[in-house]
Amino acid sequence: MATQFQRASNSERYFAALAVAERRALHSFFDQHIVEDKHLGYFALDEGDYNALPAHLAARVVHTIHGAMSDEF
Rank of each mutant, 00 (worst) to 15 (best):
Y50A: 04
A19M: 05
R60F: 06
H66F: 09
E72H: 11
A8N: 11
Y50T: 01
A55I: 15
E36M: 08
A25D: 03
R13T: 07
H39N: 14
E22L: 05
A44Q: 06
L18K: 12
M1R: 10
I65W: 02
L53P: 05
E12T: 15
A2Q: 12
A44I: 00
R7P: 00
L18V: 13
D37G: 05
D46Y: 05
S28P: 08
V61P: 00
S11K: 15
L40C: 07
A17K: 00
E12Q: 15
Y42N: 00
G41P: 03
H66D: 06
A16V: 04
D71Q: 14
H66V: 13
Q4Y: 15
S9H: 02
A59L: 08
I34Y: 01
A16F: 00
S11N: 15
A2E: 11
F73Y: 11
R24M: 05
A25E: 06
N10Q: 13
S9M: 02
A58I: 03
Y50D: 03
Y14E: 09
T64L: 04
D31H: 10
L53H: 04
Q6H: 13
F73D: 13
Y50V: 03
Y50W: 13
F73V: 15
L45Y: 04
N10A: 13
D46F: 05
E12H: 12
H27F: 14
V20W: 00
L45D: 10
